[in-house]
């Protein structure tokens, strides 16, 4: 098992070297050869990682093991996710970084889909690739100078990053510390017994039965389905909207309320940030403002 973790360390070092070569820290002209070297190193590290992962024996399958295509699809999605994440980090143009990040999100959503998180995968695509990335691209367009086709017009802070050695050394150390011990089975946590899986549906039972009893008065058609099913068949599949909703509403009610408060505070904060400061002299052109009411922009951040 020591050899297995050693292989992982070598792979992590290869990946760090690849990102170091790809990072545009030494001027773009010089990086033609470095780009090729970094791409080759990265491809080698990724292929080695996949081979290393295939060789790992697992005690408990998280994905359906009888489906022959699950494994290839997982490795495909994982490779796309890591490669596009590297491209996000090293690309000298922010717009391309944002687009590669969309690719990362799609690949991660694919992995989640395989791992039983259907609702989460869809939500990830909608929120990340739909909402958050629109914000990012909008800000990038807003804050960037127009430039021509080549990189000559790019901002200097995009073409020339900070010295990348220390960040990548830190990244390599962290990855080695995270992934190296995983290669020996003695370090894995024990999976809990499947009895605890049914805890959430068991909690949800009274709610469902209450609904069934309430709809008894409405008509027999509504109650036919829940009463006809056994206890196993009416339990929602894990990862579906139904089971996620039961989990959220039974165990994380306070967290949901806090998330709502957080979103509200974020709305207020975004409005306060986005307000442009209005000088009082500009207002004097129009009718004189009422001194009792505070001047607009007074509460905004100073300056």
């Amino acid at each position: 098992m020591i050899a297995s973790s050693l292989i992982f360390y070598v792979l992590a070092a290869l990946g760090a070297l690849s990102v170091y070569c790809l990072m545009p820290s030494a001027g773009y002209r010089l990086t033609r050869g470095r780009r090729a070297l970094g791409t080759i190193l990265g491809a080698a590290a990724l292929a080695g990682l996949i081979v290393w992962l295939i060789g790992l024996r697992q005690v408990k399958a998280l994905m359906p093991a009888d489906e022959p295509l699950v494994g290839p699809f997982f490795y495909l999605f994982a490779a796309v996710a890591i490669a596009s994440a590297v491209r996000v980090v090293v690309h000298p143009r922010p717009v391309y970084s944002a687009l590669y990040f969309v690719l990362t999100v799609l690949a991660v959503a694919g992995v989640l889909l395989l791992a039983g998180g259907e609702f989460l995968a869809i939500v990830l695509i909608i929120i990340y690739a739909g909402a958050i990335m629109v914000t990012y691209v909008f800000v990038i367009m807003l804050a960037q100078q127009a430039h021509s086709g080549d990189l000559a017009g790019s901002a200097s802070y995009d073409v020339r990053t900070r010295p990348a050695f220390v960040p990548l050394l830190l990244g390599f150390l962290l990855l080695a510390a995270l992934g190296g011990p995983l290669s020996s089975r003695a370090n894995w946590p024990k999976p809990e017994s499947p009895a605890s899986v049914n805890a959430a549906p068991a909690l949800a039972k009274p709610l469902i039965e209450d609904q069934g009893a309430a709809s008894d008065a409405a008509g027999p058609v509504m109650t036919a389905a829940p009463q006809g099913n056994g206890p196993d068949t009416d339990a929602p599949a894990p990862g579906s909207i139904e089971s996620i909703g039961e989990e959220l509403m039974h165990r994380h009610v306070l967290a949901i309320e806090l998330a709502g408060v957080l979103l509200l505070v974020a709305i207020v904060g975004a409005v306060a940030l986005a307000r442009r400061r209005v000088e009082p002299a500009d207002l004097l052109v129009g009718p004189i403002p009422d001194p009792r009411s505070p001047a607009p922009g007074k509460e905004a951040a100073h300056g």
């Binding site: 697992q58 408990k60 399958a61 998280l62 994905m63 494994g71 997982f74 890591i82 992995v111 995983l182």
Partner: peptide, 13 residues
């Protein structure tokens, strides 16, 4: 390629 995808795969990713 009938390897099972366990949680170490996801953790490494």
């Amino acid at each position: 390629m009938a390897s099972t995808i366990g949680f170490v795969h996801l953790l490494v990713l």
